[in-house]
Design a protein around this nucleic acid. Structure first.
Lengths: 163, 163
DNA sequence: TCAAACTGGTTTGATACAAAACTAAGTTGA
DNA sequence: TCAACTTAGTTTTGTATCAAACCAGTTTGA
């Protein structure tokens, strides 16, 4: 229908697709944090659309992929690598264990912890999710074009410094 | 003792700060979506650290700023501009009205809707939040350097295309 | 060697969000 | 003009997330 009405060449202006009249974002317009939130939210929604109908939660992908790449990893290391709090990982793992996508084995050297592995079934599901993720990333590639590496570099720096 | 001796110079490997041993992210390493999530989460946490002790919720900032820049805006337009669902806006506004940071006036032309304005008290609080946000954005500026405009352009494109 | 400090993982409590169902008000077209 | 659609805002419900408190096992240092 319409969007991008933009206007007054001044500074802060932005189209907000919907109905004609643009909304002024002011300072927000130039805040990296604000756009980060919008982009992350848009990307997440798009990814969920892709995995959509299947019984796979989008949040499972990173977890499965990391276990796949690091068989025997502990929940703590997984939590750090996936950027989620350890207390967030617990219920995810419980679900994955219940669904038998993941298996765990005790670590005799440290009885508090345990080692995680994908089951063959988990590998299958991961393959499917990875296909969705690859598809999704192709869309993103399309959008960011040859700036992709630069973009990732910047995002990584933000994490490294702020986190 | 340990596991994850991994390394094996293959391709995608990454250190996850904490304890020496690197965790392999594999394909994840090159997924824009993954890094978007990490960066957004890091940025959000940093912002919350800044506003931290005050009684201001970080989520209020965008809402207050947008109302400030668009006096009389409706909740729906606000929801779209701030990138949050209308059902998410409702409780935020309820709180802001209760705290008397925002005031609303009926729209005689459409009885379903209403117009939003900041109260003087709201303007004050916004000023404080804006100071935190500016501070936060300075940190981000530091990190992204002269690539900032390029970064924002890319993030905006992601939103425009995927959303 | 053993008490204190620390660490891995779980539980609990609170917040932020979206989606769907709903209500009330506005718009449209035959 | 009025029934059928559409839109603005709210309510309800479900999920993801973090932080803090907690427990059990491990490390440390006097």
């Amino acid at each position: 229908m319409d969007k991008a009405e933009i206007s007054k060449g001044g500074s802060a202006r932005t189209r907000v697709k919907d109905d004609g009249r643009p909304v002024l974002l002011g300072e927000l317009e130039n805040y990296v944090g604000f756009h980060l939130r919008l982009a992350q939210s848009a990307s997440f929604k798009a990814f969920r659309r892709l995995t959509g109908e299947s019984d796979l939660r989008p949040g499972w992908f990173a977890v499965l992929a990391i276990i796949h790449n690091n068989p025997g990893i502990t929940p703590m290391a997984l939590s750090r690598a996936s950027g989620r709090d350890k207390s967030t990982i617990t219920p995810v793992l419980r679900e994955l264990l219940r669904e038998e996508l993941v298996r765990r084995s005790a670590n005799p050297a440290d009885k508090r912890s345990y080692a995680l592995f994908l089951t063959p079934h988990g590998e299958e599901k991961l393959a499917h999710l990875a296909a969705c993720a690859a598809e999704h990333d192709r869309e993103l590639d399309e959008i960011v074009g040859d700036k992709k590496q630069e973009l990732i570099r910047l995002l990584r720096r933000i994490v490294a410094v702020l986190d």
